[in-house]
Amino acid sequence: MESRILRVESLSYKIGSHWILRDVSFEVSRREFVGIIGPNGAGKTTLIKAIVGDLSDYSGKVSVSAKIGYLSQNPERKRDFPIRVKEVAAMGLYGERGILKPLRKCDWKKVEDLLERVGIYDLKERRAGTLSGGEYQRLMLARALASEPELLILDEPEAGVDEMGKSSFYRLLESLKNDKNMGILMVSHDIGMVFEACDTVMCINKTLHCHTSADKIRPEELQSAFSGDLDLFIRSRDHFEREHHL
């Protein structure tokens, strides 16, 4: 089984004369947890859209050799819509089974196992719109996992999750990576958690400023990537200095 499951080669995208992404190349392997950081407007979400197929008019090449599970940024939630938690998670099965086929007993067992894995089994009969931000993100993760992906892609999954919930969520991702032999590619503004949880960190600001293991990034690479966002650069630098006892 080939280790590499995603290859991006010279990916570029612009609107008119304005570059959104320029000459981005990298690979992701199984059992690799990759964190993508960068300032606002750096092209991170555009990159994710190109990988999952929501964007096509780019130059370069995206090669995916694995089934993708995708947790988008700020997934829509209608608080008054009368659908239960377990029914939302089951939507992740529709891609393979079809929306019109009734779910079998084994399908519902799979859904319940996933809800147990992400820590919200006890909420399975609740209306999805009543969940907290952290609970809802776990539900969206369960839905993404239902199709048994080999590459899990997440765009700012910690949005709306409190600090304690973030730590638990990242531990869950780490266990899924190891147990399911999957690769994970995640965009995040939580720089501290990215350096703590991820094997590899990519700094993007229109182009790829660095792509290396979390403990080998140099402060000047961070400064280059975050030069347009002073607050994020300061947080990145402070975390770097704490980790390296500078």
Rank of each mutant, 00 (worst) to 15 (best):
R4S: 07
I5D: 06
E9S: 10
L11E: 06
G16Q: 05
H18Q: 14
H18S: 12
W19N: 11
L21Q: 07
L21M: 15
R22L: 13
D23E: 02
E27H: 11
R31N: 12
I37K: 02
N40A: 03
G41S: 04
T46L: 00
I48G: 01
A50Q: 01
G53N: 03
L55H: 01
D57V: 00
S59M: 05
S59K: 05
S65N: 11
A66H: 04
A66S: 02
A66E: 08
I68Y: 03
I68T: 01
S72V: 10
Q73K: 06
N74W: 10
P75M: 10
E76C: 10
R77D: 02
F81C: 03
P82L: 02
E87I: 09
E87L: 00
A90S: 01
G92A: 00
Y94I: 14
L100F: 09
L103R: 05
C106F: 09
K109V: 15
D113P: 12
L114Q: 00
E116Q: 15
R117G: 12
D122Q: 12
L123M: 13
K124N: 13
E125C: 02
R127Q: 15
S132L: 03
G133N: 11
G134L: 06
R138Q: 01
R143K: 01
L145V: 09
S147F: 09
E150G: 09
E150F: 10
L152I: 05
E156A: 00
E158N: 14
F169Y: 11
R171H: 06
L172K: 04
K177F: 00
K177P: 13
N178E: 15
G183K: 04
I184A: 04
L185W: 04
M186R: 02
G192S: 12
F195N: 11
F195W: 09
E196F: 14
D199C: 07
V201K: 03
K206D: 12
H209C: 09
K216Y: 03
I217W: 04
E221K: 12
L222N: 11
G228L: 13
G228Q: 06
L230Y: 11
R235C: 03
R235N: 13
R237F: 15
H244R: 08
H245I: 14
L246A: 12
